[in-house]
Simulated assay, not measured.
Amino acid sequence: MVFETLKPQIISITTNTKKATNERLFAICKLLENQIVYYNWVGFYFRNGDKEELILGPYVGEPTEHTIIPFGKGICGQVAVSNKNFVVPDVSAQDNYIACSITVKAEIVIPIFVNGKNIGQIDIDSNTPDPFSEKDEHFLEFVCNEVSKIL
């Protein structure tokens, strides 16, 4: 399974202290987008200080105008409030979806916790309808756990 082969690479990236945190986050985005065929946009959003909003961090994929997302708005904003994974098999069926691209068919967002506090998330868009499984969720939880160690 591709996820198992990627785990050591994720650890290698996060433990590389010669690179800045944002460089490591960008490397994770590139790795995931390159190695998982249905991951078409991979990025991180982080809480913007004490504000009730997320700010875009490192990402790969089509440029997005959604650099700031208020809590509660869109899938990412909902995860900032709920503190729970959110898997969207069909974005067109979501009332509170913020469209980044007309090609996006599905999305998965997994929160990142540091000391029990939701400080951000990994956001992945797919141009493939309903591609995400529990294996994606578990793998991305692993990724977020590793990322939390460098934040």
Rank of each mutant, 00 (worst) to 15 (best):
N127I: 02
I124T: 02
C76E: 03
F44T: 04
E146L: 05
I36Y: 06
I13E: 01
V87F: 10
V60C: 01
S126R: 00
T128Y: 12
K105F: 03
I150M: 01
T128C: 04
I102F: 10
G120F: 03
I150D: 01
T17P: 03
G74R: 04
N16L: 07
E107Q: 08
T14M: 02
G74I: 08
T21L: 07
P89M: 10
K135T: 14
Y59V: 07
G77Q: 05
L6S: 10
P58V: 03
Y38V: 01
I102Y: 11
K18F: 14
V109N: 12
Q94F: 12
K73C: 07
L6C: 11
E137Y: 10
F46W: 07
H138L: 14
D50W: 10
E65R: 12
G43Q: 01
P58Q: 08
V91I: 07
L32H: 09
F113E: 02
V60H: 00
D90M: 08
G116Y: 03
P70M: 06
F71N: 04
Y59I: 12
V37D: 09
S82W: 05
G74N: 04
V42I: 10
L56K: 03
T15F: 12
I98F: 12
Q121Y: 15
G49E: 02
Y39V: 04
E4V: 11
A20E: 13
I102W: 11
L6T: 08
D136I: 06
A106R: 05
Y39W: 11
R47D: 07
F46T: 04
N40K: 02
T5N: 07
Q121P: 05
K117C: 13
I55H: 02
E52V: 09
F86I: 13
V37K: 13
N83W: 06
I69N: 00
T103M: 04
C76Y: 04
P111M: 15
D123N: 08
D95A: 15
S126Y: 00
N145M: 07
F142I: 09
T5C: 10
A99P: 11
S133R: 15
Y45S: 00
P8C: 06
Y45H: 01
G61Y: 00
C76F: 03
I69K: 00
V87I: 13
E134K: 13
K117H: 13
T64N: 00
I112R: 09
G120A: 13
K51A: 11
E62N: 07
F86P: 14
G43T: 02
F139V: 15
V79P: 08
Q94I: 15
L54K: 00
V2P: 05
N96H: 06
F44A: 09
K105L: 05
D125S: 01
P131A: 08
E137M: 13
F139W: 09
A20F: 06
L54S: 01
N127Y: 03
F86W: 15
P70K: 10
L56Q: 02
V42M: 01
T103V: 09
R47K: 13
F3T: 11
V2A: 10
V143K: 03
D50Y: 13
L32S: 14
S92Q: 08
I75G: 06
N85T: 14
C100H: 06
I124D: 00
P8F: 02
G72S: 05
V88G: 04
Q9R: 14
E141N: 15
F139I: 05
Y38F: 15
D50L: 13
K30W: 08
N34V: 05
G43E: 00
T128W: 09
I69H: 04
P63Y: 07
E23D: 08
L31K: 09
V37F: 14
K7L: 02
N85G: 14
L32D: 06
